[in-house]
């Protein structure tokens, strides 16, 4: 009889723990990039160059990774949805590394021409190489 009670109690506790973990994982918001470990470090020029030369191998190295990129700010802009973003200079005359900022206030203290390091998640290349959820280090 005592064994049955123990088994029921253990099953109940396991159910509560399992359910709690499941709910936590289900509702867990996307983490701030500031809390994520950097996986790759590169300059904006080299990042853009690698995508320009061989997109598939650049994707294998950078796509979905937390990347720290150093470069010169050449443009500070607002996305069509009103979010702040900046562009880092590369060897390309028109396009660069486009970084969408996680913190809406982060762009206010920035100036074009300054050298900065940005940490963000690389999502690939369109016109620019794109980093999302960026934080300025």
């Amino acid at each position: 009889m005592k064994n049955w009670k123990k088994i029921i109690l253990m099953a109940f506790v396991a159910g509560v723990i399992g359910g709690s973990v499941g709910l936590y994982l289900f509702f867990k918001p996307v983490s701030s990039t500031a809390k994520l470990d950097t996986e790759v470090r590169e300059t904006a020029t080299v990042l853009f160059q690698q995508y320009s030369e061989d997109e598939n191998s650049a994707n294998a190295r950078f796509l979905g990774k937390v990347v720290e990129v150093r470069g010169k700010v050449i443009d500070i802009r607002t996305t069509d949805a009103g979010k702040p973003a900046l562009v880092l200079e590369t060897d390309d005359a028109i396009f660069g590394v486009l970084c969408e900022l996680e913190d809406e206030k982060a762009a206010k203290s920035l100036q074009t021409g300054s050298e900065i390091t940005v940490k963000g998640v690389c999502t690939g290349m369109l016109l620019d190489v794109v980093l999302t959820r960026c934080v300025i280090l």
């Binding site: 994982l25 289900f26 509702f27 867990k28 918001p29 996307v30 983490s31 796509l63 979905g64 998640v121 999502t123 690939g124 290349m125 369109l126 794109v130 999302t132 959820r133």
Partner: peptide, 16 residues
């Protein structure tokens, strides 16, 4: 029009 699939941002990490 062109988009990067990984640029889609969800509220829930598991969903993304």
């Amino acid at each position: 029009f062109q988009i990067l699939i990984q640029s889609f941002q969800f509220e829930k990490a598991l969903m993304q």
